[in-house]
């Protein structure tokens, strides 16, 4: 198999497999992950990727709630990925607009994963159990749901989706031991901004954040664009902590 990302995909699939630096980062992540996620088991929500209208594909990250594992997902030794031939090149929409094929591939992959997560979360028995556990853990336990098992599986699937995000990411950017760190904040914010319990919100917020960032980058320097985008998101979250799409629930 020539495509290294495929290998990595299978790697991230098995949670026990730890390679060199992944261990350290995983360890680093273990604490906040367990802290944040043990009690607040939100669910995996892959988000969107976007194809920039200027023709340069700025495909942003796929997102999960197993966020920190996006770090570990891509944690191999520094690799330059050789894309298979069919993924090279771009599709010319018109004379000025060209869309890279790898961008399209990642977008299709993302849509597919989003669909899978939707089906899993909202159309399966397991998804129903996850939602029950999130809404009211003691009651969910009382009606016979094994909440710990649900936690474990949810976390596992979240990590798996993050792993897919990582492997998709290598098709666009270079991957190194620290590349995941850059995305910790983005992924957290995307999920919170979208409303932690809304799949649609996550997609919308990922699109908004990445779009506004790349638009701002056109006018400002890259770092200032990032700073302003993040500040805006933080500001909005301070005004509207429940995020864009909040479930209306009586607690």
């Amino acid at each position: 198999m020539r495509n290294p990302s495929d290998l990595r995909l299978s790697k991230t699939g098995s949670p026990c497999q730890l390679s060199g630096r992944r261990l350290a980062v995983k360890a680093l992540c273990a604490l906040p992950v367990s802290l944040l996620l043990a009690s607040h088991m939100a669910w995996a929500a892959p988000a969107t990727s976007e194809v920039n209208t200027t023709g340069l594909a700025v495909t942003d990250d796929t997102v999960t709630v197993g966020i920190l594992h996006s770090v570990t997902g891509t944690m191999a030794i520094e690799v330059g990925v050789t894309l298979p031939d069919w993924m090279m090149g771009s599709y010319a929409l018109s004379e000025t607009i060209e869309i890279p094929i790898n961008g399209i591939f990642v977008m299709v992959l993302t849509l597919f994963i989003s669909l899978c997560v939707y089906l899993l979360m909202f159309r399966s028995r397991w998804g129903k159990q996850v939602r029950a556990v999130v809404l009211n853990r003691p009651m969910a336990g009382a009606v016979g749901i094994n909440t710990e098992k649900i936690d474990r599986y949810t976390f596992g699937i979240g990590c798996g989706v993050a792993g897919i995000a990582g492997s998709a990411f290598t098709m666009i950017g270079s991957t190194g031991p620290t590349s995941g760190q850059l995305y910790i904040v983005d992924t957290f914010l995307v999920v919170v901004f979208g409303g932690a319990q809304s799949l649609l919100g996550t997609i919308a917020s990922a699109f908004t954040i990445s779009q506004s960032q790349s638009t701002l980058e056109f006018f400002l320097s890259g770092s200032m664009a990032k700073v302003i985008t993040l500040l805006l998101v933080v500001g909005i979250l301070m005004l509207r902590p429940q995020g864009l799409f909040a479930l209306k629930i009586r607690h």
């Binding site: 906040p32 802290l35 944040l36 607040h40 910790i184 904040v185 957290f188 914010l189 919170v192 320097s221 890259g222 770092s223 200032m224 990032k226 700073v227 993040l230 500040l231 998101v233 933080v234 979250l237 301070m238 902590p241």
Partner: peptide, 29 residues
Amino acid sequence: AMFKRRVGGVYFAIITQALAAILTILIIG
């Protein structure tokens, strides 16, 4: 800004983390 609106827990952790990231990017930029 956060606590008067009764935002806490994970949200607070994420926002503080984001602010740390923002300051780093700002300093580097």
